[in-house]
Amino acid sequence: MGNGADVSHRFHLLYLGWWMKVLKTTNQKIALFLIVLSIVYLILSFRLPPFAYVPVDSDVVPISLGFLLLFLSVLLFFKKDRESEEGQSNRAIPKQEILILVAVLLFILLYIFLLERVGFILVTTCFIFVCSWFLGYKKWVINAVVSVLTPILIYYLFTSFLQIELPQGVLPI
């Protein structure tokens, strides 16, 4: 990647979109998000039903937390610290890598979705094999052996020895 800086620059534009122009620093963007969060949390806290029999009701601590976060976010908004270089380089990720990350997250999502429907052994086998391959592990024999044996081993360890049930799914075991 010779033009890493260029790529990351393009990514910034793509990801952060129009409000980049409105808000100058990262701190301000995060602060704005946190302010919204604290207001939503405060609204929910104020709507908690009252309970008559205790001196300090269930809404007191949440309300305090909400105001505290609001206060801290405002401070953050006006804070003009130069972010550490580490923090900045953290965010300079090539676009292609972002796509890989998102793809893995989608794999996990699919894994969770199918776990109880298809069963632990099948889904886990597929997941380990596909995910490892996708991330660049090309020794497919080892990969296949690991992805078949690991789930079977775990399944029997859990269900027979630990007496903890894992989703059996469609396999007739």
Binding site: V104, I108, T124, I128, C131, L135, T150
Partner: peptide
């Protein structure tokens, strides 16, 4: 190898 390790860690977290 990292790719395999990553998949296994994810599986272990889920279990």
């Amino acid at each position: 190898p990292r790719p395999l390790l990553i998949s296994l860690v994810i599986v272990f977290c889920i279990i």
